[in-house]
């Protein structure tokens, strides 16, 4: 495809590499929104990103946060979200590399927001077949930050995290921070007063081709980095099969084309929000436009 002209999509910060992916002095070629970009690591903590069109390069803004290198093609991008947990001293801050997923970015966000699939896709880990009910929760459009939140979410989980030793009723808060990023807070197994923070930042390469980055800020003194990553990747690769087999891959915003229930309240709020911001990239109904 050609580069999207959708101003809403262009004015987002998106990841283009994970910190450490490129050796100092090295570089990689990748893509965002159909635009080829070149990412150079110029120093231990410094990167240079440029949009590449043939032989000409246009330098793009760069930020390194949440274990990722972010850039944007827009002139007035929506700021990156503030996630306080990543600044807490005792947190395990871990990225999981990135994982390719052939679908639209919105399918990833919706899957991340969804509790109803836990029993079927993450069986005996995040859900159990004899407890499939999704209890009522609330969704909010927080206008001051223009984010979608889902609060008061609870779900019975047999093994909620790497640190879990048995089942628990897990409390979740979900937070959609931009069209292409989402996170959750879930209560720590060993300390219910605190929350693990797990994010998904999406690099949309093309409309139905993404890279998913999963930075985490976890309270866990026991597990190795390898353990934490293995747990998170195992969950994500279970979801990936679903994501790549939803039809269509582009997200339909027409409320009659897919039939939600009460458990999908967060997805309904997300779609409504996407529709209101008039985003076109990766949206089914906007293809002819």
């Amino acid at each position: 495809m050609t580069v999207t002209t959708d101003p809403v999509a262009l004015n987002q910060w998106v990841p283009c590499a994970w910190d450490g992916q490129i050796p100092v002095g090295g570089s990689l070629d990748t893509m965002i929104f159909g635009q080829p970009i070149h990412v150079q690591r110029t120093g231990e903590d410094s990167y240079r990103v440029a949009a590449v069109d043939g032989t000409t390069e246009r330098e793009l803004p760069v930020q390194v946060r949440y274990t990722c290198v972010f850039t944007t093609l827009g002139d007035t991008p929506r700021p990156l979200p503030e996630i306080a947990e990543f600044d807490e001293a005792d947190r395990r801050i871990t990225g999981c590399g990135n994982v390719g997923v052939n679908t639209s970015p919105y399918r990833l966000v919706e899957n991340f927001l969804d509790m109803a699939h836990f029993a079927f896709i993450h069986t005996d880990v995040l859900g159990a077949l004899d407890q499939t009910e999704v209890l009522a929760y609330r969704t909010e459009h927080r206008k001051e930050v223009d984010e979608i939140w889902a609060i008061d979410c609870t779900f019975y989980q047999p093994a909620a995290s790497k640190a879990a030793t048995g089942g628990q009723l897990t409390r979740y808060v979900y937070r959609v921070m931009s069209p292409f990023s989402v996170m959750l807070y879930k209560n720590v197994v060993t300390d219910p007063s605190r929350n693990d923070a797990i994010c998904v930042f999406i690099q949309p390469k093309r409309e139905t081709e993404c890279l998913a980055y999963m930075p985490m800020a976890i309270v866990d003194e026991v597990s190795t980095v390898g353990d934490l990553i293995d747990f998170q990747q195992s969950i994500f690769l279970q979801d990936r099969v679903i994501l790549e087999n939803q039809r269509p891959a582009l997200l339909p915003l027409d409320p009659t084309s897919e039939l939600p229930t009460r458990a999908d309240a967060s997805s309904i709020a997300y779609r409504r929000w996407l529709k209101a911001m008039d985003i076109r990239f990766g949206i089914l109904e906007k293809q002819a436009a």
Partner: peptide, 27 residues
């Protein structure tokens, strides 16, 4: 049609119980 009307998941990934077909995504 290979598509669950809920969230578009392919029903060919589904599983059978008795004479019912269940979608793999949300059952």
């Amino acid at each position: 049609e290979d598509r669950c009307p809920h969230r578009g998941m392919r029903l060919s990934f589904g599983f059978v119980r008795g004479e019912t077909l269940r979608c793999i995504y949300h059952g």
